[in-house]
Design a protein around this nucleic acid. Structure first.
Lengths: 191, 191
DNA sequence: TCCTGTTCTTGACATATATCAAGAACATTT
DNA sequence: AAATGTTCTTGATATATGTCAAGAACAGGA
């Protein structure tokens, strides 16, 4: 149940056995089924979630009721709304389960304890957020001023797995275009 | 010369005098004039820059030669291309000076020393990146599926200073629209 | 104050993409 | 295997925004 988390930590830092035990015991396992919500608009995000297995995605809903996907997350990734988690303010995001999933969730109190007690955990967290920032910036670069075809081409190049694991209408939303447009673009391509 | 940096650190962590001295001495002051480049496409980003005073912006240039602004940064903010800084790969970004500026720059070696020697520095850096991530995610939320008017409205709400400090054509690029469109939207508004 | 360059506005027109609609392909449940 | 729901494709039409063009407003330097 904790293999993926352990692997993720070990990729970036080394922990003693005691540290790993403390860390491990700070998380609470949580199983979720497809279409369930980890977080809904207006909620306060009280937990960071590590995905042992499965897939989630976060999105906003606009005034016309259209979804806009912000991020997908798969096995071995983290998911949360950091803004809400750190400020305690209600979130504008929904986080929904895409495939039946096994999560490990960590509340703010335990997170803070780990940061205080285990310097390597703080380092791990710094690196994780750093990487998330880099990935998100790439997303911004790929969204600005590209045609629908170019956006699709970059997705195929950088995140080919999205096209397999995620329904087309959600990928379209992630790319900021309609499902029809993505479908047409994909046809011209041979993907 | 180091006031703003000190203030920024003190907002998030406490340092001993010795730690502050070590920190301070790791930076190199650098004055830059409007239109100079801190980084150009193809360069490797070798330094993190803290802006004591002034303003910078980062952007990509597409195949048609159009600029796409990724981010603005003002007094008290950090600017760099983290992807290039941490991987050592050439960047796709340009970072240009918007107003004559005073920077404090920190190379990778010194940054790593500070992370090792001063736990509070690592904490500071974690928090800074965390905040940058939150801000960037907000940018993504505000870019997806909004009309030109809605994007402008959110900018006025969340970053009113941009409209004063930055030429319109760059703000337009930041919002992912043409300068003409921004000009028209602004007319309808009373901004 | 004039001159030069940049920034901003406004109009006319073009186009990429959205929207609406209907059915085909596919998956899941009974 | 039938039934139900979801996902994907394709066509016709509408529209928000881009592009091109020209001049007005403004700023900084000589």
């Amino acid at each position: 149940m904790y293999e993926r988390l352990k692997k993720s930590l070990e990729e970036h830092v080394s922990l003693t056995n005691d540290e790993w035990e403390l860390c491990k015991n700070s998380f609470r396992p949580k199983r979720m089924l497809k279409r369930q919500f980890l977080l809904q608009e207006g909620d306060i995000c009280r937990e960071l979630a590590f995905i042992e297995k499965g897939a989630l995605y976060s999105y906003t809903v606009d005034s016309s009721g259209n979804k806009h996907v912000i991020r997908f997350a798969f096995d071995g990734w983290w998911m949360a709304n950091l803004h809400s988690f750190f400020t305690g303010k209600p979130t504008r995001l929904n986080i929904e389960v895409l495939e039946d999933s096994e999560l490990l969730v960590l509340d703010r109190k335990n997170h803070d304890v780990l940061l205080e007690e285990i310097p390597a955990y703080e380092r791990y967290h710094r690196i994780i957020v750093q990487n998330a920032y880099v990935a998100l910036q790439l997303r911004v670069e790929n969204a600005l001023g590209l045609t629908a075809e170019e956006k699709y081409a970059r997705l195929i190049e950088q995140n080919p797995e999205f096209m397999n694991r995620v329904p087309l209408n959600l990928v379209a939303s992630y790319l900021g275009m309609s499902p029809e447009t993505l479908s047409r673009v994909r046809g011209n391509f041979g993907g």
